[in-house]
Simulated assay, not measured.
Amino acid sequence: MDTSEPRTRIVATADELYNAKGIQAVGMDELRAAAGVSLKRLYQEFPSKSSIVMAVLERRHASWTEGLDATVRQAATPRERLLAIFDYLAAWFCEDSFRGCGFINSFAELGAISPEVAEYARKHKESFQNYVGHLAREAGAPAYLAPQLSILAEGAQTTAAIAGTPDAARQARAAAEVLIDAALGVEDPDGT
Results as ranks from 00 to 15, higher is better:
H134E: 12
E187N: 11
A146K: 00
W92D: 01
K123I: 03
I52F: 03
T159P: 00
L89T: 00
I52R: 03
I85E: 02
E109Y: 05
S106R: 03
A62P: 03
T192Q: 12
R99D: 00
Y18R: 07
D188M: 05
N130F: 10
A161G: 01
V53E: 06
G100R: 00
A108M: 12
D190I: 03
R73M: 13
Q129G: 06
G164S: 06
D181L: 02
N130H: 15
D29V: 14
Y144T: 15
T13Y: 05
V56F: 08
Q24D: 13
Q171G: 05
A91Q: 13
E45P: 09
A136V: 03
S106T: 14
S114L: 04
R60S: 02
R59E: 09
E138M: 15
Y144C: 14
W92G: 01
I151Q: 11
A84D: 04
S127A: 13
W64H: 11
G140P: 12
L42V: 05
M54C: 06
G140H: 09
V72T: 10
I10C: 02
L149A: 09
Y18N: 01
D87F: 08
A90M: 04
V117H: 06
A33L: 13
G140T: 11
D2Y: 10
T13I: 06
A172N: 06
G133A: 09
S114A: 11
R7S: 08
D69M: 06
G164Y: 03
Q44R: 05
K40P: 02
E126S: 09
E138P: 13
I113R: 13
R32D: 04
L82F: 07
Y131A: 02
R60G: 02
E154I: 05
V72L: 04
A174N: 15
L179S: 14
A168M: 04
A70D: 07
R73H: 14
